[in-house]
Design a protein around this nucleic acid. Structure first.
Length: 423
RNA sequence: GGUGAAAUGACAGAGUGGCCGAAUGUACCAGUCUUGAAAACUGGCGUAGGGAGACCUACCGGGGGUUCGAAUCCCUCUUUCACCGCCA
């Protein structure tokens, strides 16, 4: 969430920035500013009354002590009036605060200066491209056919057990999945990310902290019995490690990685987009997360992009990097780079990673701060990125690496993890 | 799941209705002393909101209540510890 002070001091800049999201925030920003003025004056009034009440109460205390019961009782009656007035004002204030908070929750992050304006994914800007698209033999198949023939991913059985979008990985398919996880985790470890295994269920406060709540609850599976949510990404539990934390400046940057299954309801999706491994309700992902000094966050964003680049390179997959346009940018992000690998048999790009800088948008909600020496704590910047999401990597690997015999060639870097070189 | 105890500042730990934003100790920062360090002594040392400011307000696990007044009393939730039951 944006800092109120920031909105007040940079009103035009905020409105201009949000225009790139295809959002006319003029009214929203004005509402926030107006409400803030109302809020402040209301706070001033309430606190004035409170101070008065406190004073009177203290006086009553000393009156009792001095044995002036009569006077004390008279004073009591008088205070009661103040208290009633105070209560009314307080109710008004909490209404204002609630409205105010609600507006703040809904105003998105201001896009970075380099973010192009745009309304949809068509306006994303390709900033990097690497790798050659293989010439597949006649009769090359999409991955969903291959995995069925090889019996390494079983969608039907998943449907029986749970429903669509919950595949069962079998045999070498399961092994390949595990190999990818271990490969990604080892690479993250080498890059200095400390591994964590976080909870897969999160509470409401965590969802608010990273920006999934209050708005996107429809995208998460909600365990109503305990009011918990299945994580849509490891970003949520891993970043929330630092909720309500004040770090020392020297502790920055904090680098964590974690493998988790991710759960997404993705209501309303259909068609070729959801075919095979393209879009699932449950999938595996290795996530990298950093908490950094504000001066460093854009350098760190580049580092993270380089890290992901290296992963895709090592898997020898053709890929491109997109700078997301305002319209495609997530609520919480200031700048996001998406990675897409080319899936040759489907002849389309598949998103496999999203690397973002949230600046203080999350840390403001998380109350994640750092302190320099004896100075006042200030908000840190948070970043995260997928490194990487597994199913589409698997889809691309299977499709791009199929040979004329119908075998799948395992990339060299993975062979020590899989223990086999073909499927 | 049951029963009982507990939750106070970075940590330890007092405080059971007003003088408590909170004793004391440790840690930390600054100063005095010292060639330097240690010790000793002196001072400082939470977060947030409001105000131009002297200041004011809120916070003693969360929420609600009683009261003129709550860290302190009541209700409720959460968490921790102990014992019992169940269990990978």
């Amino acid at each position: 969430m944006l800092q109120v002070k920031y909105i007040l001091e940079n009103k035009e800049h905020v409105i201009e920035g949000l225009r790139k999201r295809n959002l006319d925030a003029k009214t929203l920003v004005q509402q926030i500013i107006d409400l803030d003025i109302e809020r402040r004056s209301s706070i001033a009034k309430v606190e004035e009354l409170r101070a008065e009440g406190n004073k009177m109460s203290k006086a009553i205390g000393s009156l009792f002590k001095e044995g002036k019961i009569e006077e004390a009782n008279t004073a009591k009656v008088k205070v009661q009036e103040t208290k009633t007035e105070q209560k009314n004002l307080e109710e008004g204030l909490s209404e204002i605060e609630e409205k105010f908070q609600n507006l703040l929750y809904h105003i998105p992050n201001v896009p970075h200066t380099t973010v192009p304006a745009g309304s949809s994914e068509n306006d994303n800007e390709e900033v990097f491209k690497e790798g050659s698209i293989p010439n597949l033999h006649e009769g090359a198949k999409p991955h969903w056919e291959i995995v069925k023939e090889k019996d390494i991913v079983d969608f039907e059985t998943g449907v029986k057990i749970t429903g669509s979008g919950f595949p069962v990985y079998k045999g070498k398919g399961a092994r390949l999945q595990r190999a990818l996880i271990n490969f990604f985790l080892d690479e993250a470890d080498k890059a200095g990310y400390a591994e964590v295994i976080p909870p897969l269920l999160i509470n409401e406060a965590s969802g608010i902290g990273t920006g999934q709540l209050p708005d996107k609850e429809g995208q998460m599976y909600h365990v109503t019995g305990d009011d918990l949510y299945l994580i849509p990404t490891a970003e949520v539990p891993v970043t929330n490690i630092y909720r309500d934390v004040i770090l020392n400046e020297e502790e920055l940057p904090k680098k964590n990685c974690g493998y988790t299954p991710c759960f997404r309801r993705e209501a309303g999706s259909y068609g070729k987009d959801v075919r095979g491994l393209n879009r699932l309700h449950q999938f595996d992902k290795v996530e990298i997360v950093q908490v950094v000094h504000p001066n460093e966050s854009y350098n760190v964003l580049n580092d993270m992009v380089e890290h992901v680049k290296e992963l895709v390179r090592k898997l020898k997959l053709p890929f491109r990097i997109l700078r997301l346009c305002g319209g495609d940018l997530g609520l919480t992000s200031a700048l996001t780079f998406d990675f897409e690998v080319y899936s040759t048999a489907q002849q389309r790009w598949l998103e496999v990673s999203s690397v973002s800088n949230f600046e203080t948008y999350q840390s403001n909600r998380l109350k994640l701060r750092f302190r320099k020496g004896q100075e006042k704590p200030q908000l840190a910047h948070t970043l995260n990125g997928s490194a990487l999401a597994l199913p589409r990597i698997m889809a691309a690997l299977i499709e791009n690496n199929q040979n004329e015999n119908g075998d799948i060639i395992i990339p060299e870097v993975l062979q020590k993890y899989t223990g086999f070189d073909t499927i």
